[in-house]
Write a protein that binds this DNA or RNA. Structure first.
Lengths: 247, 247
DNA sequence: TGACGCTTTTGATCTGCGTCAATGCTGACA
DNA sequence: TGTCAGCATTGACGCAGATCAAAAGCGTCA
């Protein structure tokens, strides 16, 4: 098998299943989505020497809030929930990390949120100390990190509007549209099925709602022929309804 | 007046009143709080050549969502509200910028939020194009920008927890504690008076509440002897009450 | 000094979503 | 094939905070 065939083979399956870099970053299925897109062949080579694939089971904890940041991660396959918890058990899911997403952009000493595998997971792992040196040595990698952080900040502000000012129905619609866009970017085309690998409780904690409200709203949408609920996700029936409601 | 006397004079007034750099960054009252803290004398010199003081009246619009980013700002004196608006008029205040805060950290083409002066304002203004070149030429300035952005991201995540999971009472308490900390950092000591130059509507839009709820909760706190309302702010009576409630 | 405009406060009422409780569904395993 | 555990759904009811409406402060200006 020549390298171009291997390459396109990997691209075709981006985001679909468990899948490692195969020990060669050049053929990584999420490279075009990730921080690595910024790197030239030389830098990619350096980075590869620092990388190790690591696999997590569903529900595995990658790290907890307050833990020292000893590794940073590039998600290769699977979904992660990022969680802030209050002392009394209330939770806010601050985001979901999908293939191509990077955990550890901030270069701070300790994690400010916990990360748990929603599905079986493959991640490209770097020792934090190595990665930090790598960033400092390559200014345009630092710039890329900054661009990623800025993008995250914009998304965080979008989410503030959602949490502070949208109704339950608008929140759900926005969430579904967001997931559709993100999966589309990963797959390279608009998917018919919007995959929702996370449970209702995670969706509720992401949207600042209760599990009952999430369930009620989605099922009402189905009764109103706006979508159909299918195993592992939903399918839009009335696209315009969602585009009109979403943030 | 020698320069050290001028310096301490400026420090003493940090955050109190309208006050410019006086055309010399070395004596800037907010330098130790701002992005400029990262710079050595040489870099500060370069930056100064690019800087111009600009003054805004109360209610002035610094820029609007979607506007091209032609300038970036370092707030010298006064307070700015940062706003995301929905088409139907609902608003979310994503943050308040205080002296030392920087607007334009993301280096994106267009603003993603509007900025309006809550009080009369002095800001140190840089042409975006100049500033970007300056960042690219000085890697550790880029790193500092990234650190600022990362910090903002953490604050944004804190605010998501507040918006998604706190009660009205907890939101108000968290807000007051946040403002106390931020003014303390600017003044260099814990202030007796917590200055609230923004109106009730801005506070409501920051916390995802209505103006009536903000008013009711604060006035109830006063009736319960947790604080006293004074012109331009509040004063804590029962510090522990707030520390226990706040995020 | 009084009239005006704007913000804040207060009261009465309503409602969207939370809470509590029960039932249903699905997949794993004996 | 039945049992069990963990999620999702559904229903009944309650309440925190929204909405609607009015009054009270308060700075500004003629």
């Amino acid at each position: 098998m020549d390298s171009s065939a291997r390459h396109s083979d990997h691209e075709a399956h981006a985001g679909c299943a468990l899948r490692s870099r195969g020990d060669d970053c050049r053929f990584c299925g999420v490279r075009h989505l990730s921080i690595c897109q910024a790197l030239d062949v030389d830098e990619l080579d350096q980075l590869e020497k620092m990388a190790s694939d690591s696999v997590f089971e569903e529900r595995a904890v990658l790290f907890r809030e307050e833990d020292q940041v000893s590794s940073v991660f590039n998600i290769t396959a699977g979904v992660v929930r990022l969680i802030r918890s209050l002392p009394d058990g209330r939770r806010q899911v601050t985001g979901f990390a999908l293939p191509g997403d990077f955990l550890g952009i901030s270069l701070e000493k300790a994690w400010r949120f916990s990360a748990e595998a929603v599905t079986p997971l493959v991640a490209c792992r770097f020792r934090r100390s190595n990665f930090e040196v790598f960033c400092e040595k390559n200014p345009h990698v630092m710039k890329k990190m900054h661009e990623f952080a800025s993008h995250e900040l914009n998304l965080a502000q979008d989410h503030m509007v959602l949490l502070g000012r949208l109704t339950a129905e608008e929140k759900i619609a926005s969430f579904l549209v967001e997931m559709r866009k993100r999966w589309a970017r990963i797959a390279g085309h608009e998917p018919g099925l919007i995959r929702l690998p996370m449970g209702r409780q995670d969706i509720a904690d992401y949207l600042g709602l209760t599990i009952e409200t999430v369930s009620r709203v989605i099922n009402q949408m189905q009764r109103d022929h706006k979508l159909v609920i299918v195993p592992d996700g939903v399918r839009f029936v009335d696209q315009n309804y969602f585009d009109d409601l979403a943030l």
